[in-house]
Amino acid sequence: MKLACRCGQVQGEVDPQRAYARATCYCRDCQAFARWLGGEGLLDAAGGTDIVAMAPDGLRFTRGFDQVTCMSLGPRGLLRWYASCCRTPLGNIPRDSKLYYLGVPVPAIAEPAEAIDAAYGPRGRIAVNAESATGEVESSGLARFVGTLRIVANLLGARLRGRRNVLLFDADGLPLREPLVLDRAERDALTAGS
Score class of each variant (00 low, 15 high):
residue 121 G to T: 06
residue 134 T to Y: 04
residue 126 I to Y: 03
residue 122 P to N: 13
residue 47 G to S: 01
residue 33 F to T: 06
residue 135 G to P: 04
residue 118 A to Y: 03
residue 177 R to L: 09
residue 125 R to S: 13
residue 185 A to Y: 09
residue 40 E to I: 10
residue 105 P to D: 06
residue 183 D to E: 14
residue 55 A to S: 08
residue 67 Q to W: 14
residue 190 L to N: 01
residue 145 F to A: 01
residue 105 P to V: 09
residue 58 G to V: 02
residue 51 I to C: 09
residue 85 C to Y: 13
residue 191 T to R: 02
residue 141 G to T: 07
residue 161 R to D: 00
residue 177 R to P: 14
residue 185 A to Q: 03
residue 120 Y to N: 07
residue 136 E to P: 15
residue 51 I to T: 08
residue 102 L to F: 14
residue 169 F to I: 09
residue 139 S to K: 01
residue 72 S to C: 12
residue 179 P to G: 06
residue 18 R to E: 10
residue 93 I to S: 15
residue 8 G to W: 09
residue 112 P to K: 12
residue 25 C to N: 04
residue 136 E to Y: 10
residue 181 V to K: 03
residue 80 R to Y: 09
residue 187 R to E: 00
residue 55 A to Q: 12
residue 137 V to Y: 03
residue 11 Q to H: 14
residue 92 N to L: 14
residue 37 L to V: 06
residue 180 L to M: 09
residue 174 L to I: 08
residue 4 A to W: 12
residue 62 T to E: 01
residue 116 I to Y: 06
residue 17 Q to F: 14
residue 96 D to L: 01
residue 39 G to L: 10
residue 161 R to L: 12
residue 130 A to D: 14
residue 24 T to Y: 02
residue 70 C to V: 09
residue 43 L to N: 12
residue 160 L to S: 13
residue 55 A to K: 02
residue 43 L to G: 10
residue 100 Y to G: 05
residue 176 L to V: 05
residue 86 C to A: 09
residue 149 L to F: 09
residue 152 V to F: 03
residue 87 R to K: 15
residue 16 P to K: 02
residue 19 A to E: 15
residue 25 C to M: 00
residue 33 F to Y: 13
residue 5 C to L: 10
residue 49 T to I: 02
residue 57 D to G: 01
residue 178 E to P: 12
residue 168 L to Y: 03
residue 115 A to D: 07
residue 130 A to G: 12
residue 107 P to E: 02
residue 56 P to Y: 04
residue 129 N to P: 05
residue 166 V to E: 15
